[in-house]
């Protein structure tokens, strides 16, 4: 009886500790919403999402986050365009082309790339890359969308590589050997058999990389130039943009606690959280599919 009790009590205690993560997620939501609530109740949410005018200190203040949202999306998409080809090729190279020995050398390099803190990347962007770009390409400012996107691409790469490599490796030998048996070259095998079979995992990796890029603060704050505008023409990467994260980080230090500006920043944080959650669900969906696909084989 005593053993039974201790077992169950112990289990319950362990369970409660394990629930900290749930509690943490709950508290994060609760407190961000709590601080943002007065703003959401008072200001029009439609204007918050569709206006491009972010003038929080004007009279009356204007809180339109569209330009910031576009800025976030802009640098994220450009960085993903840079990162995906390199990431998938690198993943394929590591899983299918090189020997275990070389792989064991390259893996730590990717890990180090992931370990370098974002503020160090931001520092590099401002102090090294920006002056170089300004001089080399004659941009009016070195801190622009291109600079931020390049650095974000480097930061998203390790995530993309490791998740896609896992799922590419999980594609069984049988599939590959069947393809080789039909006379396909390695490239044909990879593009026509392996990558289609591993697509769920690769997509999950890309989405996770996007999450990293959208949520990244220091790099975009330091490297993107912080001008709240929608780039026009849209392909001109040498313009400054401003992202949601950079706005929160940059403005919070200057606001008074409880002011509409402060509340608006929490609302922006909530918006960011919702975007990330949606992306998270997408990545979860693809990860589960990847797992199931792996299980079937």
């Amino acid at each position: 009886m005593r053993g039974f009790l201790t077992l169950h009590l112990g289990r319950t205690a362990l369970f409660l500790v394990t629930c900290t993560s749930v509690l943490a997620v709950f508290l994060i939501f609760l407190f961000v919403v709590r601080e943002a609530m007065p703003f959401l109740a008072k200001f029009s949410i439609k204007e918050f999402l569709t206006s491009t005018a972010w003038y929080p200190e004007a009279v009356p203040p204007k809180f339109g986050t569209l330009a910031l949202l576009v800025g976030s999306g802009y640098v994220t998409i450009v960085s993903i365009i840079f990162a995906v080809p390199v990431g998938i090729l690198a993943a394929v190279f590591l899983s299918d082309i090189v020997s275990m020995k070389i792989r064991n050398i390259i893996k730590p390099i990717i890990e180090i790339l992931a370990a370098i803190p974002s503020v160090a990347y931001g520092f590099f962007a401002v102090m090294v890359l920006a002056p170089w770009m300004q001089e080399k390409f004659g941009f009016s400012t070195g801190t622009n969308a291109l600079n931020a996107s390049l650095i974000l691409a480097v930061m998203a790469l390790p995530t993309i590589i490791s998740v896609s490599e896992d799922s590419i490796s999980a594609v069984g030998r049988e599939l590959r050997e069947a393809s080789y048996g039909c006379g396909a070259t390695r490239m044909e095998t990879i593009f026509k058999v392996v990558i289609p079979a591993a697509h769920s995992g690769i997509i999950a990796g890309i989405v996770l990389g996007m999450m990293r890029a959208i949520g990244e603060t220091m790099v975009v704050w330091m490297a993107s130039g912080n001008a709240a505008q929608i780039p026009s023409p849209w392909w001109d990467l040498s313009q400054s943009v401003r992202t949601l994260t950079a706005t929160i980080a940059g403005d919070m230090g200057e606001t008074e606690k409880g002011s509409p500006h402060y509340r608006a920043l929490f609302a922006a944080g909530l918006l960011l959280l919702v975007i990330i959650l949606c992306l998270n669900m997408v990545s979860e969906y693809f990860l589960i599919r990847a797992k199931q696909a792996g299980g079937k084989r």
């Binding site: 993560s21 749930v22 943490a24 997620v25 508290l27 994060i28 407190f31 961000v32 709590r34 601080e35 974002s118 996770l208 999450m211 959208i214 949520g215 990244e216 603060t217 994260t245 929160i248 980080a249 919070m252 920043l265 929490f266 944080g269 960011l272 959280l273 990330i276 959650l277 992306l279 998270n280 990545s283 979860e284």
Partner: peptide, 20 residues
């Protein structure tokens, strides 16, 4: 929850830390 927590942007942790 653990996966969500891993995906929350660091700046939101900053907001949470301030608010909570």
């Amino acid at each position: 929850s653990i996966n969500t927590l891993a995906g929350v942007p660091s700046i939101v942790f900053g907001l949470f830390g301030l608010a909570f």
